[in-house]
Amino acid sequence: MVPLSWYIVLSAIVFSIGVFGFLARRNLIIVFMSVELMLNSVNISLVAFSHYLQSMRGQILVFFIITVAAAEAAIGLAILIAFYRNNPTIKVDEINLLKG
């Protein structure tokens, strides 16, 4: 048998890679993909918990997370396109409209 902790460690490593990608990359699309990566890592641990606890809830939650991820990707990319139309750049460190 594979112990539960292996899954969690795997999930943690993937999540951390996602965090790294989110914080380090300049390309906004890759940043988005890092977010997806983090969501997936959470999904892994949820499914693992679901399996080991013999409960369905984890999987249902994954189901909803996938739904939200799809919606988020659609909206996020739409915003990206709308933004790119006005400011032709998707470099995270060149976008500072929030600066006060």
Binding site: V19, F22, L23, V31, V92, D93, I95, L98, K99, G100
Partner: peptide, 17 residues
């Protein structure tokens, strides 16, 4: 203090992390 507000997404992300 205003200098903290760079307006850069990643800086905010860093702070949050």
């Amino acid at each position: 203090f205003r200098k903290v507000q760079t307006g850069l997404l990643s800086n905010y992300g860093l702070a949050m992390a």
